[in-house]
């Protein structure tokens, strides 16, 4: 039983990281921290891909003499693409954060939501109920 648990340790690491990232994402109001959480969350999935590419006893996937067993290179290649996507997402997220800071003067989500609500209420008051 214990053995099974440790056999699949890569999955446990992935699950832990995912949940940590997810928690950060939800629990913090700071937009930057949310992006960090998102990154941890994504990285967890990347690690899952990478770890399943490993074949027990297999060597690096570089053709060489005397080697019969290679690890699977495809997941690594795939995750390279996914990392690029992740970087782009992070960049866009940070860019948006800068714009939000300029527009609202804060990067705290609660404050932003409150400001949006106030604006809405003000409009409603100004126009009266229609």
């Amino acid at each position: 039983m214990m053995l099974d648990f440790f056999d699949l340790y890569n999955y446990w690491v992935v699950i832990f990281l995912m949940m940590a990232g997810f928690y950060t994402l939800i629990a913090y109001d700071n937009l930057i921290k949310k992006i960090i959480g998102l990154n941890i969350f994504q990285s967890a999935v990347f690690m899952l891909y990478i770890s399943v590419g490993k074949v027990s006893g297999g060597s690096e996937p570089i053709a060489a003499d005397n080697i019969e067993l290679y690890s699977n290179p495809l997941p690594h290649v795939l995750i390279l693409t996914a990392i690029v996507v992740g970087v782009a997402t992070t960049a866009l997220g940070l860019a948006l954060t800068i714009r939000i800071k300029e527009a609202y003067g804060t990067i705290n989500e609660n404050d932003i939501v409150q400001m949006n609500r106030d604006a809405e209420a003000e409009k409603a008051q100004e126009w009266g109920r229609e």
Binding site: G93, T97, I100, A103, Y104, I112, V113, N116, A119
Partner: peptide, 8 residues
């Protein structure tokens, strides 16, 4: 400006 927070 709400479009920014919506996009985020």
């Amino acid at each position: 400006r709400r479009s920014l927070s919506a996009a985020f």
